[in-house]
Each structure stands twice: as C-alpha cells, then as structure tokens.
Write a protein that binds this DNA or RNA. Structure first.
Ligand SMILES: [Mn+2]
Ligand SMILES: [Mn+2]
Ligand SMILES: [Zn+2]
Ligand SMILES: [Zn+2]
Lengths: 132, 132
DNA sequence: GCACTTGACGAGAACGATTATCATTACTAC
DNA sequence: GTAGTAATGATAATCGTTCTCGTCAAGTGC
C-alpha cells in the first residue's frame, strides 16, 4: 500500500525501455503523447524523479542545466556515464581510479565528506557516421 | 574600444576578490547591494558570464542546478574544483590522470570529441570545525 | 576640454524548466 | 464490493535566468 502500479508508471517504464537514451522529462512526455499515451506532464516529472531516487533511472544535467533521464543499466551503486551529445545514447562507466583519486585529493586539502560528479560527453560512432 | 571598463565591472571584480568563494549571480548582487554598490542584477549576470567565457571567472553548477561563480586562480586552461558545500570556499584542482582516463574511456567506446565535467564537493576544515 | 559614437547599463517584462495545488481518480487490502 | 489513500493531471505558481529597449557614460579624435 505504498507504491501503486499505475497505468502511467508502466507506460513510462515502457517508454524508457523502448528508447534507451537520455531525454528530458518534457521530451519523454512528448514522445509518449505522440505514441498515444494519455499522461500528464507532472506525472512524468514525478515518476522519473522517484525512479531516479530509487536507482532505477539515472539523472544527469546537460550543459544547459536541464535534467536528462534514462533507464539505468548498471549493476553496482555508484557509476558515471559517457553520453552522446547528439542522440543521448550512453554507456555506463565505472571509474575506481577516479573514485580513489577524488578521495585522495579531498583528504590532501583537508576536506571531508567528499562527493563528486563526473560526466563524459562525446559523439557516438553512429552519430559520427552521420556527420554530426 | 571593445571592452569598456565600467564602474560596475570594476565593482564586480572587487567583490569577487574580496570574497573568494563560489556564489550565485544573485548572491553576488545581493552582497554588492548590501555593501553599497548600486548595480543592476542583469549587469551582474552579464559580466559574470562574459568573465567566465574569458576565463577570468570559473562557473560551476550546484546540485540544484544554479550556476556559481568565483574568481579563477588557475594558471593553465583546463582544471576542476574541490568546493565546500557550506561556505563556497574552493581549491583549484588539476587531474592529468583523470584527463587521460576520460580520453581512453571515450576511445574504448567508439566516442570521439570527448568532453568532460568533474566537480568535487566536500566540507572544508573551517566548516568542519564549526560543526557543519 | 568637448562632442560623438556606441558599448554598457538597468528596470521591468518575458521566458522556461520545474514544482505546488487540490479536486478527482483508481489501486489495494480486507 | 468498499473504504482508505496513493496517484493523477489541469492549472497556477515559482524562480533562476534572459530579453527589451530607452538611457547613460567610457573611449576616441580633435
Ligand atoms: Mn546508470
Ligand atoms: Mn579556476
Ligand atoms: Zn549519438
Ligand atoms: Zn566551508
């Protein structure tokens, strides 16, 4: 009686599964609406956020500050992404070397409770082939 | 006669120099106004952005998506930051190991034109001493 | 110093992503 | 089936940031 399985939540998961790319909440909403799903924009925002908190969805910020969501494929907890700036395709990245480096840098400077964000952006081979 | 030295631009540089912390455009504007400077908010935004483009100022995004600015102290071009989440104090970081790691990861996955962002956040020793 | 050109300023409107409202709907447990 | 309540969605509101455009003043040439 806490998390209910609604038609909308299922539809969002379907959409995320079909298009395996990073997209904004508005883009997901638009794609779903175009695909015939009747769903409110606020519902898309709410579910993507709760899914992200639950770890089922990854959320990153693009250079314009907008939040992009994609179904998470990683097994472990903490990881990063290499994302195509053109199509949103992405690869899950683990960087143990970076993790330890960040911790060391923090300690060296007297900082505690170190946290970090890292995002790699590039042009995927498919988009490069299209001349993007 | 392209870049003019205005009273406002000078005041912003003074403010940035006095308070060596990452702050939002609105925070800088508020601090300056409180300090007696008469300056428009749009002017603060414009100058911080142009200074950031020129490399004199660093701009990062906090977890809420707001952009924070601080005078840049780095000598080289590309670098990162270790920032205190409480007071905005920050240290300029160089990470050659991370740079090459990012390039390698990109190549391994068939991505080209790799770019990356990385921000370290923590609690500085001063704020830790205050129990924050 | 003085007039001129035009970059820069700033008050306020506009923008746009995201969040809050709250009446209504529809899962779920029993 | 029904009650209880989580979830929805149309809409308004929020808020950081950007745009407008009339006014101002920094730089320039004399
Ligand atoms: Mn992931
Ligand atoms: Mn810097
Ligand atoms: Zn691509
Ligand atoms: Zn601090």
């Amino acid at each position: 009686m806490t998390v209910r399985t609604t038609r909308q939540r299922t539809a969002i998961l379907d959409a995320l599964t079909e298009a395996d790319e990073f997209r904004s909440a508005q883009q997901w909403h638009e794609a779903m609406s175009r695909g015939g799903d009747r769903i409110g924009l606020a519902t898309v925002y709410r579910n993507l956020q709760s899914m992200a908190e639950a770890g089922a969805v990854d959320a990153v910020r693009d250079e314009d500050g907008e939040v992009l969501y994609r179904l998470c494929h990683a097994t472990g907890e903490h990881h990063h992404h290499l994302r195509c700036r053109h199509c949103g395709a992405a690869v899950e990245i683990e960087g143990p070397a970076v993790e330890s480096w960040a911790a060391k840098i923090g300690a060296e400077n007297g900082f505690t409770n170190i946290d970090h964000t890292m995002e790699l952006t590039g042009t995927c081979s498919a988009c490069a082939a299209k001349g993007l």
